[in-house]
Design a protein around this nucleic acid. Structure first.
Lengths: 332, 332
DNA sequence: GTGTTGAATGACAGCGCTGTCATGGCTGCC
DNA sequence: GGCAGCCATGACAGCGCTGTCATTCAACAC
């Protein structure tokens, strides 16, 4: 790395002390307009870019916010990130991101290396962490937000919704529409990817609600791959090949459900007459389809947004349930 | 921020000097096994997490890599990010991300604040930057990769493909299939979002190729919103309402094209008999649709991957054209 | 004229780590 | 036995900035 210009050089160029330059750049303390102008000119002339590494070390406070996401393979977590990016930028924070691929061990390692940067706050996904990860989060002395799930206890700030309820809503909707022979298509992780615990919570809410009503899932296909439209299409095809009598299928999310919908379109299976499909998330793409997917809307942008604001603020620890909403759609 | 344990405390606990602890933690220099064990025990006992801010300042070299993306609203850039995340993690680097919303001024500001963290490298999107942004990138003394576009000159490393060619390929395909009455549906930015220069390059390649063949685009609809499935659906509807005689429509990307496809499905417009649709990117979702979209495949994961590797390596400045591929699909 | 204020600036130490050079002890070899 | 050569460890300075306290000086009151 070539030597970059430092505060000292700017100070010399402007004929003032370093601390004065520092104050000008941070708008802190009283500065004579003439001095400010002279300093800014030197900054411009030298193309000076402040070194926040040094600044952070000196002031023990960075503008970094760590964001730990399980995956970037579908649009869900990028949307959370997008929700957070706005407020963070507005408040002068910089997101540092880490992707776990749903692997708790990787999450632990990533949390540690994020913490090494002494971030101002950390946003993580979900409530389940390894004991050491949780200990690190508790002892970090910074705000921590856990996103996307409110089914459980948290560390500091929780911003999410109940995945169990999402499954329940799906089940109740399908029951109320008169469907009785239920299937489920879920996603596994493939070889290198861990379990999607929130999808499992939805599944359990779904199964539980059916059971309470005296019904059950007749058949279940778990595609051994990360969630995707292709996986959903394949999974539904498999499921129907095995169990042609089903009249309603719950899929682990809208990617999967859209895949299932595509399968039905291709095969001439009439939706929802012959088969009902229900997803999760209310992704835009599913709502613009010829028949909007029946699903549950999750406010992902809002989760990122609120999470970011709380993590950078000084509100007390709290759980924000952003709520979810049944989207009746046209596929169930 | 609560006081966190420091190297010094670990050193005291282990009965060695700070530098020894430092060496153990970084596996640098010779360390007696017994000493190493004693140090690691102290680290564990105190829950010590190294402070990379201090480390970076002392050694003038961070493990941060800045990534500047125009948008997170569709899956394209998250895929680039995902492509980069793997190699970066493997090589021990941490991505810091910034989102410009296609605004060059915002890009300039974001590059500056990324540079303030003295990253090891920077990955930006596209070849067009403000003069000051470009100057900062050139003077930063770090590796810079410009991604997603190879139509122009770059600063250091370029990893991308020709968007002009993508437009040309689309035009040639439609021409070769015998279509003659062409339309275009593009996306603008909406109120707060800048121009998508790469989409404009595709458009220009498309229009140019038609012209060379003696044809032209009869009608054009630019939706004043960021690219999305909904925008594509709306845009195609508008275009067809105005110009019902078109027989082939090029859309600015696959999101838009999928929206158009959904519109046709809803309206009973037969594809590609009555109307041909051509997109860009070969998104998974479009390839799993009942009729796979006719489009051009862009290797987005690969771009992120190669960009990350080059930025963190010491290869000479170079342009890597990852190439694109016509996907004939079934919609044109 | 003296003292009081407040605005504007500076001197200095230190944030937590690592690079550099120095040191002590041990092995091996003629 | 003496010395080269290596292993293991340490002392010290300094990375580039900011917090704290001190200083200067003009304006103003009495």
């Amino acid at each position: 790395m070539t030597r970059r210009t430092t505060l000292t050089e700017v100070a010399q160029q402007a004929g003032v002390s370093e601390i004065t330059v520092s104050r000008v750049l941070r708008n802190s303390g009283p500065i004579a307009p003439a001095t400010r102008e002279r300093v800014m000119e030197a900054v411009r002339a030298l193309g000076y870019v402040p070194n926040r590494v040094a600044g952070t070390l000196a002031s023990s406070g960075s503008n970094l916010v760590g964001i730990v996401l399980p995956s970037l393979a579908n649009i869900v977590f990028p949307e959370v990130l997008r929700g957070a990016a706005g407020p963070l930028a507005k408040m002068g924070y910089q997101p540092v991101i880490a992707v776990t691929e749903y692997d708790p061990a990787r999450e632990e390692a990533l949390i540690e290396s994020l913490l090494a940067w002494r971030p101002a706050g950390l946003m993580v996904t979900g409530l389940e962490h390894t004991p050491r990860a949780e200990a690190m989060l508790r002892n970090a002395g910074i705000r921590v937000a856990e996103l996307m799930d409110s089914d459980g206890a948290g560390i500091d700030i929780i911003v999410g919704f109940s995945n169990v309820d999402a499954g329940r809503i799906a089940a109740r909707h399908l029951l109320s529409r008169g469907y009785r022979r239920f299937g489920y298509v879920g996603h596994g992780g493939g070889a290198t990817i861990g379990k999607d615990l929130r999808a499992e919570k939805r599944w359990s809410g779904f199964a539980m609600t059916l059971k309470e009503a005296g019904y059950a899932v007749s058949d279940k296909e778990i595609v051994d791959a990360p969630s995707s439209v292709a996986a959903g299409r394949y999974g539904l095809a498999e499921l129907l090949a095995r169990s042609p009598g089903l009249d309603a299928v719950y899929l682990s999310n809208d990617d999967m459900a859209l895949g299932g919908y595509f399968h039905c379109l291709s095969q001439g299976i009439s939706i929802p007459g012959q088969l009902a499909l229900f997803g999760h998330n209310a992704l835009d793409v599913g709502q613009v389809a010829p028949q909007p997917l029946s699903t549950v809307r999750t406010p992902r942008l809002k989760i990122g947004e609120i999470g970011a604001k709380l993590v950078c603020g000084d509100a007390p620890p709290q759980t924000v349930d952003v709520g979810i909403e049944l989207i009746e759609g046209a596929t169930a």
